[in-house]
């Protein structure tokens, strides 16, 4: 990518990308830590994840301000304009991803040490994919890499499959063990949160694809729909 004649514009874009990378890094770490806290039942770590969300929120506000400044002062055009608009939308999504991590962390103290649900062992693997998607989407943004964005979109299917599988297992488990319903519901919500993280990472990837190419991504094959299955 050739440099702008006005170097200060490149500096602005560089700064914006660095801030988004930092924000994304914090969101990824929050998902990681929340899942580690869950598997170790580490309430102190969970508390730190909840606290750490404030820094993500602050970064969002800072980036929004910076985006408005760049639009006002630099009047970006074409792919620059698409990137700046994508940046503005992406930080809103990353902020939500941070919220999901916080929500997972908040549920950690509510799941007992004795609990040995099978899905608990699936959550770290599911979380790993969701986290990779977030990282992939933000890497794609920084590099204006449409192929990487497509890769992220395709990964979403795996997260959905995990969620569907956990959902079925948990429903069966709750029917057989009514006393665990409260705890099981929390686990189900955690799985749902991770599924949403995957969806949001996919959204980011779609925005990156548009910013990089100026076209919307091709339609993808969807996984089986949980709601339709239940009706049938």
């Amino acid at each position: 990518m050739a440099e702008h004649t006005l170097k200060a514009f490149d500096d602005d874009i560089g700064e914006l990308r660095a801030l988004i990378a930092e924000m994304g890094g914090r969101a990824e770490a929050a998902i990681d830590d929340a899942l580690v806290a869950l598997s170790r039942r580490d309430n102190a770590l969970a508390e730190r994840v909840v606290e750490g969300d404030k820094a993500i929120d602050e970064l969002e506000a800072l980036i929004e301000k910076k985006v408005v400044q760049v639009i006002a002062l630099r009047a970006p055009m074409a792919d620059d304009l698409r990137e700046i608009i994508a940046a503005l939308k992406i930080v809103g999504v990353v902020e939500r991803i941070g919220d999901y991590a916080k929500n997972i962390a908040k549920r950690v103290p509510l799941i007992s040490h004795r609990s040995s649900h099978e899905p608990l062992s699936l959550l770290p693997a599911m979380g790993q994919i969701a986290r990779e998607m977030v990282k992939g989407a933000l890497d794609a943004f920084a590099a204006r890499d449409a192929q990487k964005a497509l890769w992220v979109m395709e990964r979403d299917r795996a997260v959905d499959d995990f969620y569907n599988s956990i959902f079925r297992t948990m429903v069966t488990f709750m029917m057989e063990n009514p006393k665990t319903i409260s705890e099981s519901a929390h686990i189900l919500f955690i799985a749902k949160n991770l599924e949403r993280v995957g969806d949001h990472a996919t959204n980011v990837a779609e925005m990156v694809y548009y910013a990089a190419t100026g076209a919307h991504p091709p339609e993808r094959e969807r996984g089986p729909d949980l709601f339709q299955e239940q009706e049938g």
Partner: peptide, 19 residues
């Protein structure tokens, strides 16, 4: 032209990368 030019030279010019 201003959001999604097809030609690289157009893009470089309108985004201030020309020359």
């Amino acid at each position: 032209i201003f959001t999604n030019p097809r030609e690289e030279r157009t893009k470089d010019y309108i985004t201030g990368r020309y020359g």
